[in-house]
Design a protein around this nucleic acid. Sequence first.
DNA 1: TGACCGCGTCTTTTT
DNA 2: GACGCGGTCA
Length: 771
Amino acid sequence: MEISFLNDLNDSQRLAVEYTDGPSLVIAGAGSGKTRVLTYKIAYLLKTGLAPSSILALTFTNKAAREMKGRIGAIVGERIARYLWMGTFHSIFSRILRNDADRIGYTKNFTIYDTSDSNSLIKSIVKELKLDEKQYKHGLVHSRISFAKNNLITPEAYLANHDMMTADVNSRVPMISEIYKIYCIRCKKADAMDFDDLLLHTNILFRNHVDVLQKYQQAFSYILVDEYQDTNFAQYLIVKKLAEQHERICVVGDDAQSIYSFRGANIDNILKFKNAYQHTKIFKLEQNYRSTKTIVNAANSLIDKNKAQIPKTIFSEKDTGELIKVLSVFNDLEEGVIVANHISDLRNKENFSYQQIAILYRTNAQSRVHEEALRKKGIPYRIYGGLSFYQRKEIKDVIAYCRLICNPNDEEALKRIINYPTRGIGDTTVNKLIECAQLHAVSAWEVMSDMLRYNLAVNAGTANKLAQFRNMVNVFSEQVTTQNAYDLVTGVVKVTGVISDTFVDKSPENISKRENVEELLKAIFEFSDTRQKSKEPTLLPDFLSEVSLLTDQDTDKESDTDKVTMMTVHAAKGLEFRAVFIVGMEEDLFPSPYTVSNERELEEERRLFYVAITRAEELCFISYAKSRFRNGKINFSNPSRFIKDINSEYLDSPKEKEFEPRQSRFGNWDEDMDMERNIFGQQDYSKPKPVEPFAPRILKRLVKFEGSNDEKTVTTNGSIPADAFVKHATFGIGKVVKTYIDNGNEKAEIDFGEKGIKSLLLKFAKLEVIE
DNA sequence: TGACCGCGTCTTTTT
DNA sequence: GACGCGGTCA
């Protein structure tokens, strides 16, 4: 079969694309056209007659999936590409889990707990068990639980696992197995899964229900996995099971770029792939199309120092290019200034645009000095990382309402908003509620639904407040299956008071909060809109299941504007820039001091540096400072050991004696740097940074919440709009179903949720319309 | 219940 | 230096 697009590939790429009979491993060096191979391979499979719905392609980010889908669409047509099973492990398998959720004791609408939900739950369990919270830090406990789940160790298996148990005893946290057990029970009671559960429960589903496994084994006749070096055991096993029959599977990755072991990724998956699949064909993509010879060779000489790796020879046929320039600076402030100067030279003298330049660092905290230096020189920049849109408090609050409405058993959502905005239900009450729920082995919501039966020990006033809150949620819950997500959530933010809470004063924080909520509604509208066009469901649970797996990487903003990129090295994986500045190359920073005692972890740090260098197409700068302001004090340190790992023939290093006299064009450094600090110090860092607008900005603003909150209620004198939310003195909050004239009197039929649908005479019923 | 203060901690983070 | 957390007080 002659397929013309294959002519775009080199020989090794083409071989990798065309081999589809059995298992294959594609070792794709940095810049070797990995994405191209994957997309062409899928296009090739489609052209050879495979149905798109029989191809499963797993990626590590939503963004990667989306981009690849777009590229494939460009080759084979969007209408075909749409039916590919392409997405992250988590999104694909959450979809599969929802289909058969009842088989493993969940409902279709199960909640996905994010990291902070998990941590919050762990904290409350530690408290309930009366354990020392300093000893059982939520971060530590969570990472142990996460590790267990990623390795498919259930709570029972954990107890029986000698290694895990002795490790816990030795670390003086012997109760982790108990916390883990309770954590799982609580998640299940809340109809919630955390990120790791999505993989663990997929394995459980496949193990316990062979018919389900077989269904998907037959459905997927070819499986592709991207970034295979970053998969964990749970992911390995899912793939292994699905591919068991036909072994038509292709995994792509680069062991030299495995940098996520701290999240459970196991590099052995790629190193030992051929043991797992016996007749594996290995393809190596060794030509780097991205970088100059110097950069490729320098990176090779670095990664050579690692022991565990698949042998390969990455080469470039581009120009030799410039040496990697090593910048030795006095301190962090000078580093900022010098990098900024270089950037402005590149732009003014070397014809670089800002967006072709990146500053990469090991830790987010390092961004500050560079930010300041660039700002002072008027260089535009964009910092990636930090708080994502969906992690902002006001957004999480609204999402928590949504979650609770769709799944009232969601305990973390309940805790979050039961007293936000303030409605007189304090910690004491919440604790009583949860204790009572534990006592009767039911969810907190169940207790709230029948407080008398569970004998909840609160006074009448509190009970009334709880009932009011419950009724409000119920009114919304009833509409989950009938209202589209956008209309429903618009009602939610009005009625719950989330929006009026932002009108209490005119502070910039409140204004930005309100704008963010509006942006969220816009995102929900876009979701409903696009879904509607393709005739897919537009209900709130559909939106939630999607949004819980989104990260800020997916809301890529203003990519068309010309700005310098600043991000951690981790975040830069997969990207490329004409010029790259790798800053803070010091001992105690890069490699991270947490890793140097462990050879395996140190090798991962070296790979991280390898990733950083190989982002550069033409120019690479490495800087290190003799002193750095960190954790509130000045730290002195030496150049990173990794700089010595690079063959010196590729480096343009400073001569040692340049260090000695602290002279510079500014005169005495110490004084000048103090002065600089004072200048910086005058700026008010305490003010919140301007809030990044949430993209994509496609649609015009849909809703704008106007006005002050003191006029939010209107006593009706006759007409109220249908669909309005109203408040009644006895029945609480309800929704107007319809209004009509009866015997010459205006009446309204109002749905008060649990209290039923009531027909009320408008001239008697003192209704407040909630705007 | 919420505002405020002092203390301890501080990596990376595709989901 | 900055943030999150827990404790205290109005």
